[in-house]
Design a protein around this nucleic acid. Structure first.
Lengths: 340, 340
DNA sequence: CTGAAAGCGCTTACAG
DNA sequence: CTGAAAGCGCTTACAG
């Protein structure tokens, strides 16, 4: 195997100088840089990352923590994040966690055993970060949830403005003539740290703005972020409240499960029941009928998240919290209620 | 940070002995083992994996190479493989590759730069493995394709019997009264190394067994393993051959895209056109109508693959090639042709 | 700008 | 069964 020693010997420079060239140190002569780079290319030399990391006291891998299995939206982001990271020469480790597990504790443990350079969280509960987020001693980025109010020195976040989007969804449904609107998804707890809560908050504002009442008991049903979750929760919801004419599923994965349940209950979408999702996943463009939804830009989310993390790992940039744009996509799953 | 040095000091034994305890070496006294293990527990000590791997000349991470973006079947396996590997205490790195890229070359490169312990391939082209598979110097497992005939010393494989399953699919459609059957998916090349080809082979046998002709020009259309691919390919197929009454998509992801296209062309499923997929992904149970398909057991696939890899990494077990069972799931997407 | 050298935290012959 | 020591391939003060 070719090591830095070989490159040193072959180039006529010392190991130290070769190392400096590899790491783009400024204090290297042009001549040395050119010569060393040439030899590296000739030998197709790859520095041993274990040795490098041993010195630098960190593992090369950026770890992506995905909260929830079979959440298709996260799968899409994961693919992009991984690809961008790889193009930047970074190693990528992945850990899938249950939707309800403590991702911060998992990260803390990984810090001592694997020493990753940084974390990207796909989904996260702010409550966990508030409790012991600072125990994670490497840069973190939270995607699809806002952590601005936590003000942690090691946590950036990028997400759509969930509140604003929630508002637009309900406003959109109301403008289509719906007044008995159901909402599914998220956990029932009112901690305010869950993504579902922020979307819900926007919904409530929209109901209030239109002077329409919203009875959580009769119009809300919690659900896991899965198709099975959506299937069960919408069934419960429509059974306990047959007056509902439109459903907002706070994730497309949930919405797709719900569509199937609505169909199984004998209703037509959107004639009998309208449904709108959130995320804008690829699958939603192929459902029958096509799913109306709030589209989050996966590409921007992934790119901003990785860029932020790398700048903080390599150049100690400060944390940032940014909204990324969203658009309401009109599919075929929303219509005016037929009894109008 | 606690290092092996601290454990040595605290336990009263040398670094060497501590290392032997950690690595379960036989030549350690019972007393030493107990004492050292106690201190390790007290200190919550985690060995530095970089140092370990530097010595052992390998990286801890098992790397999963996923061939193709947005292939929902692979995403499901990925989640399970990652979880099982993590439960075994293994680090997991992931690399998503384009469906048509050379995964073997990618692996060879990773070997020199990252030194993984082993690879799990989700999808793979046998041709690439035949050419330079032996250049990968760590154990490999190929999932969802059979590599038995290649007889490589470093490659195990687990998959359904694609030929048998392909046979059953066509047999099933023919028994439903279809004779003009279209097939979509896979690449047009007849190398015989692609998964599509094996399924196709079984299909051809079934046509022959029933004495029905199959004109590849008029009844086959290649497609990427994506919903967009399925959408486009079935459109082409039905345009060039309007007599088709049933379509076999060799992957559920393709099938879901195709269903949407069929609908957009003004046909009803299964009244006008029947469709059947392959894989048995979760999403197929929520489509409208539900997708009929060949179900591969993700759990078994993931578990066998990981088990095999670990046994070969740790105990130098021999390679294996095994068929895993499949079942034809009758959804709602296949009916008898209406003009019968 | 460059080189010699210490040291990161481990593993593993070697000697006893 | 145990310890002392070399060495894995790098990075980085330090000295010049």
């Amino acid at each position: 195997m070719t090591t830095i020693k070989d490159i040193a010997r072959l180039s006529g420079y010392s190991i130290g100088t070769v190392s400096r060239v590899i790491n783009n140190h400024p204090d290297v002569s042009e001549a040395a840089r050119i010569k060393v780079e040439q030899i590296i290319r000739e030998q197709n030399f790859q520095p041993n990352s274990n040795a490098k990391q041993l010195k630098q006291q960190s593992n090369s891998a950026v770890t992506i923590i995905v909260k929830g299995y079979e959440n298709m939206f996260f799968e899409g982001i994961l693919e992009r994040v991984q690809a961008i990271l790889r193009d930047s020469g970074e190693d990528v480790a992945v850990a899938f966690l249950d939707e309800y597990s403590n991702e911060v504790q998992a990260a803390i443990q990984l810090c001592t055993s694997r020493k990753p350079k940084g974390f990207i969280f796909l989904g996260g509960n702010l409550e966990f970060f508030k409790q012991e987020g600072m125990k994670i001693d490497v840069p973190c980025v939270l995607l699809t949830n806002t952590a601005g109010e936590l003000n942690l020195e090691n946590l950036s976040s990028y997400s759509t403005n969930d509140e604003e989007a929630g508002y637009q969804v309900i406003d959109y449904l109301i403008r289509h003539g719906h007044s008995e609107i159901g909402i599914i998804g998220g956990s029932a707890s009112r901690i305010g740290s869950q993504i579902g809560f922020r979307r819900m908050k926007g919904c409530l504002d929209a109901f209030a703005a239109h002077g329409i009442e919203f009875d959580e008991k009769l119009q809300y049903e919690p659900s896991r972020f899965s198709m099975a979750g959506g299937y069960e929760s919408v069934k419960k919801l429509l059974k306990k409240n047959p007056k509902i004419t439109a459903v907002f599923a706070i994730g497309d994965t949930i919405a797709i499960g719900a569509m199937r349940a609505i169909k199984d209950m004998g209703f037509e979408i959107p004639k009998d029941i309208s449904i709108i999702g959130y995320d804008g996943i690829e699958s939603g463009r192929y459902t029958i009928p096509r799913l109306s939804t709030i589209h989050q830009d996966t590409e921007i989310l992934a790119r901003k998240g990785v860029e932020d993390l790398l700048l903080r790992i390599n150049y100690h940039h400060p944390v940032a919290h940014e909204d990324i744009p969203f658009t309401l996509i009109e599919g075929e799953s929303v219509a005016s209620p037929s009894n109008q």
